[in-house]
Structures are given as C-alpha cells and as structure tokens.
C-alpha cells in the first residue's frame, strides 16, 4: 500500500490571525491496517501538543517551551524556534477512537488505524 494517505491540506495556505508558526518535518508510513505519521517537534513538551481531526483534516499544533531563559543574550541564531502547525488532509477513513499519539525525544508518532469499512476486502464468490 502506498503512503499517500495524507496530503498537506490546502487550507494550510490561508493566513491565520496567530503568531508565526512553521511546518514541521514529517514522515508517513502505511500498511493496510494503519498509517503512522512521525513528526519532528524539537523543544515541544507533551503538554504543548494538540491534535484535532475534523472532516478528515488532521490538525496538529505544537507549542515549544522556551529553551533559553529570558536573561540570555543571543549571540548567534540559526534555529527558528517557532511553534509548529501541520494540517494533513486524510483521504482514508480513520478510526478516530483508536487513534494514538506518543511523544519521545522530540518525535511525535501518530498511529491512525484505518476504519474497517475502508479496508480492502476480498469477496468470496459463492
């Protein structure tokens, strides 16, 4: 099975009245049973992650905890340090109840089980 269950949602382009965010790096893996989406969220604690699935659009927001104290003076900056926003349009029916998410070492692993009705089925000829 291909891994094209999820496409970036076009709504991602629309401007939102919120602080600047960046799209995280993510990877999608799939089997007939479930899709696995791994998202890189460095600097984000468990409490900072919110996931929402609505009308087949998966929205992931992740807020970093500041990794630098306020009295630190920046000498050189390469990292953006922005919060994350990822929207994925799912084109497979996913079982919302059985969705799981785990955050480990800055990687969020989302498991999206495919709904029974959407799984390929072989029909026996009588």
């Amino acid at each position: 099975m291909t891994t094209n269950c999820c496409n970036p949602s076009p709504t991602q382009q629309t401007a939102e009245p919120e602080a600047a965010v960046m799209k995280p790096r993510y990877f999608v893996d799939g089997t007939q049973e479930a899709y696995e989406v791994r998202v890189e969220l460095p600097g984000v604690p468990k409490e900072g992650v919110s996931i929402n699935l609505e009308e087949n659009v998966l929205t992931l927001r992740a807020k970093r905890t500041p990794s630098a104290l306020s009295d630190w003076k920046t000498l050189h900056r390469e990292l953006k340090g922005l919060d994350f926003l990822l929207r994925l349009r799912l084109n497979t029916q996913v079982d919302e109840e059985k969705m799981t998410a785990a955050l480990d070492h800055g990687i969020l692993t989302l498991k999206l089980p495919v709904k029974e009705a959407a799984k390929p089925r072989r029909i026996e000829v009588q």
Partner: peptide, 12 residues
Amino acid sequence: AADIQEDKDNYF
C-alpha cells in the same frame, strides 16, 4: 544548526 547565547556566567 546552532543557536549561541550567553548570560553572565555561561555561554550556551
């Protein structure tokens, strides 16, 4: 990529 910061006592 790296960010470099400092306070009174340390570089980070």
